[in-house]
């Protein structure tokens, strides 16, 4: 299957500014989304997104069609930048893994979508980084299992193990929200 970005990248490499704008329009939301979910910080996510596109501008002219999907390459660059930042934060003594959200207080009160969304975000941030990476790539970035495994640098079996563990951890962290959502569905 032909890479849908092949022509655009070629035009960017030739200096076409409209192609550059189209490439940004097409991929920037996904890059920011990936970085935000991995890093938990909107400002750091924007820094990563900018760095990804700096590398796009640098490499577009040398991009060889057929070697890999361009979007997969962008995801690999973005993920590596995120993992580097997370490890740098650990070395510098920064907090990388927030505590698992406390589910006790919310067990009996109804939650609106915004609160549930915030708790999903918190629970994602509490996952170990490789489980978070697997989940973000497969659930939110719509990467296939083969692409996601390649981006993280693991086998497909290992990816599935990461995904299973991530989902189990999230179900535990979000048990109150699950119950609330299920009861909301039952009462219509």
């Amino acid at each position: 299957m032909r890479d849908p970005d092949e022509d655009l990248v070629s035009r960017v490499g030739a200096g076409d500014s409209r192609a550059a704008a189209e490439l940004v329009r097409r991929h920037l939301p996904r890059m920011v989304g990936l970085a935000r979910r991995m890093l938990g910080d909107a400002s750091e996510a924007e820094d990563v997104a900018q760095e990804v596109f700096l590398r796009v501008w640098r490499h577009a002219a040398a991009w060889k069609p057929g070697q890999a999907k361009f979007e997969t390459w962008m995801h690999r660059v973005a993920m590596n930048l995120c993992l580097d930042r997370l490890r740098r934060n650990v070395r510098n003594g920064g907090e990388v893994t927030p505590e698992m959200p406390d589910t006790r207080a919310s067990a009996t009160r109804a939650l609106d979508d915004r609160q549930r969304r915030d708790r999903v975000r918190d629970a994602l941030q509490a996952l170990p980084e490789r489980q978070r990476a697997a989940l973000v790539l497969c659930y939110y970035q719509d990467r296939t299992n083969i692409e996601a495994a390649d981006i993280i640098g693991v086998s497909v079996d290992a990816l599935e193990s990461l995904l299973s563990r991530a989902r189990r951890s999230l179900k535990t962290a979000l048990s109150a929200e699950r119950a609330d959502l299920l009861s909301g569905l039952e009462t219509g």
Partner: peptide, 26 residues
């Protein structure tokens, strides 16, 4: 139903300033 819960976490549109800065770096 758990997938629906995870799907509440949606992408946020990037800011104009970010798009402009990225195009400016090209």
């Amino acid at each position: 139903s758990f997938d629906h819960l995870l799907a509440l976490e949606k992408d946020v549109p990037p800011s104009i300033s970010l798009e402009t800065a990225i195009l400016g770096s090209s």
